[in-house]
Amino acid sequence: MRMRQWLVLYRKEQLELLRSYKLLWVPLVFILYGAMQPVMSYFLPDIIAHAGNLPPGAVITIPKPTASEVMAQTLQQFNTIGILILSLSVMGIISAERSSGLTSMILVKPISYLSFVTAKWAAMAVLVLIAFAGGFGGALYYTTALFDAVGWQHSLSAYLLFSLWLCLAGSLTLFFSSWLRSGAAAAACALGVAALLALTSSAFPDALAYSPGVLPHLAYSQYDAAAGDNHTLAVVAITLVSMLALLAAASAVLRKRPSLDAI
């Protein structure tokens, strides 16, 4: 019964992603972005040479980066723009429905608030996995074609770790979307918190070794043979727990204020 209702809610979210073309444009942007980074790195010397504002005779030598470095750079790019695109695309996931008054019709049906929130989360996670698979695949393809092959085990674990980080950012957006009235504020808060997590964990790498903020670093360091194991499993577990907590909090907040037009 519960499960069937959850599936109904999830199917609707999936259909919405499809009909609103989010399932098309978010992956496209990610692919474009992922493919651009290795191509840019490859052609950087030519681009600078043709920029035309160098004095004649200037000699520039840019060391050609290794394939692993290129992949790590790409991931760093995704850490800013990827999260931005993601939070912008899911920022209204709850707040928009609430301010339009839809939730006041859906949430009076005998469904659980947690199912409502988790169905949205699952759709968001699917979007993240698909979009980032596209972006990561694009990056991997061009890196392999222009530079060198990278180990697939490293790539797979980097993909999974970074996807988890993106999912956490999405969960943050979902939570703020259920808490705040405005979708833009939700996106801004989610970006802020994600940036704060990443910043604090790089500022205090020892004190916050288990913070979910180290996830992006863990993902980059998959390509760095020198980096040892940084309690990856523990960080993953903590991230999963914090996502669950965010979902529970989002549904509690939603239960407290299922609709806005109450007053």
């Binding site: 919405e16 609103s20 339009s100 008054g101 839809l102 006041s104 019709m105 009076v108 005998p110 037009d261």
Partner: peptide
Amino acid sequence: RALIGYLPQTPAFHGW
């Protein structure tokens, strides 16, 4: 909630 059918003052729907 299972016993109640509710129509809000200004019903909103998914346009898609």
